[in-house]
């Protein structure tokens, strides 16, 4: 199997958007992205179930504390933006998004770019998540204030905004993670074998920061979109 995004062996070229694919009924499936998503999802579910089974009141594990801190931060954001009582289900929704994106991004720190790239480096996952987010936001807005929701589309800018929201949300995440993958391939390509491990390791460490940061940004923007949709004052753009 050759690299997914890199063809550095011959000619020293870097190919972006190259995936290990299968064709199903005439449609193309990015197999590496699907597998990587399943791996990240399995990690999330596995850790979640592990925490849930050992959830302790008096002596929480470090992982449980990490889960609880994440949950508390999301609850705080939801409370600040729209109020938990307004839509309490937003909290577990954003919690699942945060964990899935975080562990998908963290797959970038593994030296497995060739056969298991981070799934967030594929627009299929980022567009999929932003699509689900915007559907949930629109559904919530229509359910609570249907007249106001449709009324604010009288402004054409509002239509553009509603279109650009999911695109910017997904492409921001996709671009950041993909750039990390490209940087790794560039480092491998440009540095000699005896030296490349230095910037390679440094960038892998930086990828951790990118992974956390992008997960936080995506989650907070998701909550903000919910807050805008449920705001008492209609935003007339």
């Amino acid at each position: 199997m050759s690299p997914a995004v890199l063809l550095a062996a011959e000619g020293g070229e870097i190919h972006i958007g190259k995936h290990w694919t299968v064709s199903l009924l005439g449609f193309t499936l990015n197999l590496d992205t699907i597998i990587a998503t399943l791996v990240a999802g399995a990690i999330v579910i596995g850790l979640g179930l592990w925490v849930a089974r050992r959830a302790s009141v008096g002596k929480p594990t470090k992982l449980q504390i990490a889960f609880e801190v994440t949950k508390e931060q999301i609850e705080q954001q939801v409370e600040d933006n729209l109020g938990i009582r307004t839509a309490p289900w937003v909290v577990p929704f954003a919690f699942a998004i945060a964990l899935l994106i975080l562990f998908s991004n963290l797959l970038a720190i593994l030296p497995s770019e060739e056969w298991l790239p981070p799934p967030t480096a594929d627009v299929n996952l980022t567009f999929g998540l932003s699509f689900v987010v915007m559907l949930a936001v629109w559904f919530t807005a229509i359910k609570r204030h249907p007249v106001r929701f449709f009324a604010h589309f009288k402004n054409p800018m509002a239509i553009i905004e509603e279109i650009t929201k999911p695109i910017s949300l997904s492409l921001r995440l996709f671009g950041n993670v993909l750039s990390g993958v490209i940087m790794i391939q560039l480092i491998i390509l440009l540095f000699p074998v005896w030296l490349f491990w230095v910037p390679f390791t440094a960038w892998k460490l930086f990828d951790i920061f990118i992974a956390v940061l992008q997960a936080v940004i995506f989650t907070i923007l998701t909550i903000i979109y919910f807050g805008q949709a449920l705001a008492e004052e209609s935003d007339a753009h």
Binding site: K18, T21, V123, G128
Partner: peptide, 29 residues
């Protein structure tokens, strides 16, 4: 079912059927 390498024949900024699998995976999670 055909395994192949996609050489970026299409625009890699456009999603394909994988997005459905991704959405289903997220909903499952």
């Amino acid at each position: 079912v055909l395994a192949q390498e996609q050489e970026g024949g299409g625009n890699f900024l456009l999603p394909n059927l994988t997005i459905v699998i991704e959405v289903l995976a997220f909903l499952l999670i």
